[in-house]
Design a protein around this nucleic acid. Structure first.
Length: 271
DNA sequence: CGGACAACCTGGCGGC
DNA sequence: TGCCGCCAGGTTGTCC
């Protein structure tokens, strides 16, 4: 579900209610949600620590504590929100991990498909070391992207989805970026011209920034921590628009399968 | 190396 | 209504 813009929105919204809060206790009802360490160790270690800062790397949420980092990956259907203990929330029926805080509130991790994971580690590199560059970082330059793309001979969409190539792009924003760059999702990366790569670099950043500006896309499961929907889905250009007119040329948007993922594009605009 | 596919899970939706 | 098949914003491991 959540890609870079959705995770970034969640991180921004969690800072105020969580930073400075001390963790009193931990609860879970689905063992596999706890990636590592073992639940007993996890609970013992996290109890008593205070949340210092909250950041994002790729699609991971990183909560820096006194001695560890609490890492959360929402996968397809994960939601995070802070609620008063005892107060019922819409998504509670899928909560599988929860932290009690020192102000009577709780951080709840709801995840209907149970793909999401939480980690507690004092060495974040064990989780993030293989991730590619952050597309919105100032340090991510157009030339770096070009050199990087030249190392592969792959279908361009599968490359964009590869978190070791570039971090944070998922199925929605891959389609959106390729449309903005007017590149066909099935193009082989080694056939892209320098000009096309240049366009793609800008298109990725524009698509992701638009997603953040609209606080994420709530097509199905994604919600902001306050429970409300993002608006990004109302501004998507091709994702989910099969058989609808292309916003650029008016021709019908097509849906095909690329890299085992539903893929939306304009056959007229994207070559 | 790159692509295909299964696995991990549940819910929503369209079709009959 | 009920049931069935299909689809879903992600990642990982295996096989060819």
């Amino acid at each position: 579900m959540p890609e870079l813009p959705e995770v970034e929105t969640i991180v921004r919204n969690l800072r105020k209610p969580l930073i400075g809060r001390r963790i009193i206790s931990m609860w879970y009802d689905w063992e596999k949600t706890i990636h590592s360490p073992e639940p007993t160790d996890f609970a013992a270690r996290i109890t008593g620590q205070t949340i210092q800062s909250i950041n994002r790397r790729a699609k991971y949420i990183l909560c820096e504590l006194n001695h560890d980092v609490l890492v959360i990956h929402l996968k397809m259907t994960g939601r995070l929100y802070v609620a008063d203990a005892g107060v019922v929330h819409d998504a509670d029926r899928w909560v599988h991990f929860q932290l009690d805080l020192d102000n009577g509130k709780q951080l709840r991790f709801s995840d209907s498909r149970k793909f999401g994971k939480v980690y507690l580690t004092n060495n974040i590199e064990t989780i993030t070391s293989k991730l590619g560059p952050e597309p919105l970082d100032d340090s991510f330059k157009q030339d770096d992207f070009l050199l990087r793309i030249r190392r592969y001979q792959r279908t361009i969409k599968s490359l964009l989805l590869d978190q070791t190539f570039i971090a944070g792009i998922g199925n929605i924003y891959a389609d959106e970026a390729l449309f903005r760059a007017q590149i066909h999702p099935q193009r082989q990366s080694d056939t892209l011209t320098n000009d096309e790569i240049q366009r793609l670099y800008g298109a990725i950043r524009n698509a992701l920034n638009a997603g953040i500006d609209h606080e994420g896309a709530s097509i199905n499961w994604y919600r902001k921590p306050d429970g409300s929907k993002g608006a990004s889905q109302d501004y998507l250009l091709v994702y989910g628009k099969a058989d609808q007119p292309c916003p650029r040329c008016g021709m019908s948007i097509k849906k095909i399968r690329v890299a085992q993922r539903g893929t939306h594009f304009c056959p007229n605009c994207q070559k």
